[in-house]
Design a binder for these strands. Structure first.
Lengths: 174, 174
DNA sequence: AAGCAATAATTGCTATGATAACTATATCGG
DNA sequence: CCGATATAGTTATCATAGCAATTATTGCTT
């Protein structure tokens, strides 16, 4: 087994091929995410936002007039990391969000999108949509659905950290 | 369309759902890669290597006795733009690789794995293999092959930067 | 109601990543 | 052979990620 030469094998040309199909898959996953991440980054960075900042700004907008607490933003970020405070600092300094200590529970700090932030997102939305489309256009609609399902399955099985929303992880195909 | 509630939608619970299937797919891709990357990182980090360092060390080992030039290592890395010199500095300082200026062409610096580096990799190999298996076990063998093909297709379509090693890109599965 | 654990957010420190500028060597054109 | 250009690698700079420790506030427990 393992003698079909995939594009990853050609791209990351190692003298020895992959040791397993699983290894090939994880490498392909990480490398593909890296490529797509850069592509998306190039869309938002000319507007002064890193991809993480854009992601956070969208989450704050999604919360609407009710606002969203700092750590709730972190939970919804693509990258799970912890630097959320500083990302929000930047967005606030740029006038894209506004922060206000919550009233019943004064520990929380709620974030709201400003008009300026909303305008920037409105400007970015179509560009990011187009980039998203372009990124997975090679799959076509049907395979895109399969693709999302596979990714969901992988994440579900790897749900160690986070909210552990496992719900009886079936062993799947194997 | 777009009314099926995927796991991503639940995980990144936004008030508004995804604006498109493509957006759902790119978010799922990036988030899944982040999860898997952390999982793999947890395997190698206890041995004093970051995932990037492990990746570089494996590439150097893959080159064997012939050695491999610095920039050639960078090309084969999972993350494309990375600061390869400092990663190799760390590996050399840890005694895992050895560097030597190339002789016919004195611009190049060739890297070789040391015995110590080889031993560390031999120790890590089964653990990483197991982690790779676990990461995509949810897909099973058949879907894993599909998965790799989809990722290859996406990367091929997004091959803007990098070495542009296209060479008459077959449309593959589609 | 005093003490203690839990939660929310921030900050400090260190390491890493991205980009671009810089140095050294090699190659090509005349 | 000399200068222009390309290639290989390193270094500098800056922003960000990750981890741990800290502060502020709340809720629980007796």
């Amino acid at each position: 087994m393992n003698q079909r030469s995939s594009a990853v094998q050609r791209e990351i040309r190692q003298t020895r091929g992959f040791r397993s199909r699983s290894q090939e898959a994880t490498v392909a996953l990480l490398r593909t995410a890296s490529v797509v991440s850069r592509t998306l980054g190039r869309v938002v960075e000319p507007h002064g936002l890193s991809l993480a900042q854009y992601n956070a700004l969208r989450i704050v907008r999604g919360a609407g007039r009710a606002g969203v607490a700092t750590l709730a933003v972190r939970e919804r970020m693509i990258e799970e990391g912890t630097t959320i405070t500083r990302i929000l600092d930047k967005l606030e300094a740029a006038g894209l969000i506004r922060r206000k200590r919550s009233e019943p529970d004064r520990r929380q700090v709620l974030c709201y999108v400003t008009e300026k932030g909303g305008r920037l997102l409105t400007e970015l939305d179509p560009k990011v949509d187009a980039a998203d489309e372009a990124a997975v256009a090679a799959l076509g609609a049907t395979r895109t659905e399969d693709f999302v399902r596979m990714l969901d399955d992988i994440r579900r099985a790897n749900a160690v950290s986070g909210a552990a929303r496992s719900t009886a992880v079936r062993a799947g195909g194997r």
